[in-house]
């Protein structure tokens, strides 16, 4: 049996939740003060996901960088692979906020989008 301690980030309460599991099968979830904590802990145990934010190079604009994020959370385990692709990317202004910069980032099925506009 394995135990995993998870700090809930759903609200500022920050419950310390313990997930007990047999392999990938969850046996118990304890320490959460609300239902949302249980869902969070379950997701964190099985496949933790995060919105990845970074920047890509942009040419033809006043500033050298364009801030970007994944449109939806992506698995944490994919961060390294995602960053490799992001670092190798250069785009050309003009760029509109929320424009797709990379389709299906690193096979996650999630697009990378611009989080601000860059005029020429």
């Amino acid at each position: 049996m394995t135990r995993k301690n998870i700090i809930c980030t759903v609200c500022p309460m920050g419950c310390n939740i313990t997930v007990k599991a047999d392999g990938s099968e969850i046996i118990s979830i304890e320490g959460n003060e609300c239902k949302r904590g249980e869902i969070y802990a379950r997701d964190e145990f099985t496949c933790p996901t995060r919105t990845l934010t970074s920047s890509v190079l942009v040419t033809n604009a006043k500033e050298p960088l364009l801030p970007v994020r994944t449109e939806k959370p992506v698995p944490k385990a994919k961060f390294g692979e995602c960053m490799e692709i992001i670092k190798a990317t250069t785009v050309h202004a003009p760029i509109k906020i929320h424009q797709v910069i990379i389709h299906d980032l690193a096979g996650t099925g999630v697009n990378l989008i611009a989080t601000c506009s860059r005029d020429v």
Binding site: T51, T53, P67, R69, I97, T115, C116, S117
Partner: peptide
């Protein structure tokens, strides 16, 4: 909803 700083400002 969750946004980044530049999106919030925009």
């Amino acid at each position: 909803k969750e946004m980044t700083g530049p999106e919030y400002a925009a």
